[in-house]
Amino acid sequence: MHIMEGFLPHPWWEIWFGLSLPVVAYGVYRMNKMIKDSRETLPLLAVAGAFVFVLSSLKLPSVTGSCSHPTGTGMGAILFGPWITSVLAVIVLVYQAVFLAHGGLTTLGANTFSMGIAGPTVGYLVYKAATKARLHLYLSVFLAATLADWATYLVTSIQLALAFPSATGTITSFEAFAAVFAITQIPLAIVEGVVTALMFKYIVALRSDVLLRMNVVTQSTIKRLKEAMS
């Protein structure tokens, strides 16, 4: 759900830049600290960012027949946490704007807020809560990715509604935007949730050490999942 270049009027695009900037700046601070601690983080972050870009440039098999792309932010949030994901998201969004003509430069702030901050934060919190509630790993991943996408889509609708309130107020305008985008976004988010959960299944089967190293899962969970598989 990218807002296209030129769609957000003054003063809204500046406001969203202002809201996103401190979060991203703190993300950069966190990232610099992480790089100082272990130098091998930067290349891994880089390949993760490239992966998110490539994933988002692929077309998802879509139920409604519309052209739809996964966001990959839920995945990033689970692996790296919301702060660093916001830095990755800014870079990926600039590339999407420049290489694929998705999104834009003045709307970068708003898109970063919806896709790089709101979505990953929700995804991260949901994943943490679900692990604490001892839900099955794949179910937690599914919930995190799906809810992250829905959060993104709701925030985008709010952004558009605030910028273009209807005659009867912001709420009706929000309902209209949310209803129009719901047709594609609600099924799309579920598909992305399923895909992300299946991805985790393959990763657990082939390279579970990656997940252990990023502190995403515990040793005992992996052991249980592997036993269930065999």
Partner: peptide, 16 residues
């Protein structure tokens, strides 16, 4: 759907 999940996970592992 399975193909897409396989593609993305293989891509993720290879990129890692």
């Amino acid at each position: 759907l399975t193909s897409f999940a396989m593609l993305s996970s293989v891509l993720f592992l290879r990129s890692w």
